[in-house]
């Protein structure tokens, strides 16, 4: 009787003990998770609110990563770039792999301003397309993940001071990588998004995403400024 009874007596006690232990454990994991999410949220907001601007002015100018897209996007982008001051001494152009037209236009744009001091260093980088026109949402998600995995090492390697983009889907993974670099404190990158002039009353899909993940979000029509109060309206730019 003795040993069996002892077991019978001790078992419920053990069970009780381990039960409350597991509860505690789950509670603390849950609490830890909440704190982590909260901290991540605060940190993300901190990075996005622009407290993380490149403050130290470099003597050799800032580096600028430009996400170029197809056709109209490239036209608008080259117009914006045409008037930039000479303080962006290094330019990295990131293009979707399938886009050879834009590459040629960028090269001729850069060649056109090779005049002494205005000459800047530039390089062209290719990444997989994150979304083709008319691609479905679900398969877009998959290709976007693939694209992000490709963009992360590129963003880490280039570590630009500023990212400028204006709409092609390719810019979403790049901007998310930039945000990640800011969150982990590796590099503060200012993400600047300029919505296309074509968008008068509704944002593009890229715009709707990057409205939440950019430091400066610029629109070109007043109606959009009304709808998206966080955006900046400077008149028609291109």
């Amino acid at each position: 009787m003795t040993s069996q009874n002892q077991e019978a007596l001790s078992c419920p006690a053990l069970l009780h003990l381990s039960g409350s232990g597991m509860q505690d454990c789950a509670l603390s994991v849950g609490f830890g998770f909440l704190v982590a999410v909260l901290l991540l949220g605060i940190r993300t907001r901190w990075v996005l609110r622009g407290y993380a601007r490149p403050r130290s002015r470099k003597k050799d100018g800032l580096s600028l990563l430009v996400v170029a897209g197809s056709g109209g996007h490239t036209t608008e982008m080259l117009r914006l770039l045409g008037k930039l001051s000479t303080q962006y001494s290094t330019k990295y152009y990131v293009l979707a792999e399938t886009d050879t037209m834009s590459e040629e236009r960028i090269r001729s744009f850069e060649r056109s301003k090779v005049t002494g001091i205005e000459k800047s260093m530039y390089s062209i980088h290719h990444i997989p397309r994150s979304r083709e026109v008319r691609q479905s949402w679900s398969s877009s998600l998959l290709t976007s993940i693939k694209s992000t995995l490709h963009c992360l090492p590129l963003t880490v390697r280039l570590r630009p001071d500023v990212i400028l983009c204006n709409g092609p889907g390719t810019c979403v993974p790049i901007c998310l990588c930039a945000l990640l670099l800011g969150i982990i404190g590796m590099k503060n990158i200012t993400v600047v998004y300029v919505e296309s002039i074509c968008r008068v009353e509704s944002l593009s899909l890229t715009g709707r995403i990057l409205y939440y993940f950019s430091n400066l979000f610029i629109v070109q029509w007043p109606l959009l400024k009304e709808k998206y109060p966080k955006s900046i309206y400077l008149g028609r730019l291109v």
């Binding site: 117009r79 914006l80 045409g82 008037k83 930039l84 001051s85 500023v162 600047v192 300029v194 002039i197 400066l216 610029i218 070109q220 900046i232 400077l234 008149g235 028609r236 730019l237 291109v238």
Partner: peptide, 10 residues
């Protein structure tokens, strides 16, 4: 449009 406004803003 006026890209120079964007340049000075940036």
């Amino acid at each position: 449009g006026h890209p120079e406004i964007f340049a000075s803003f940036l």
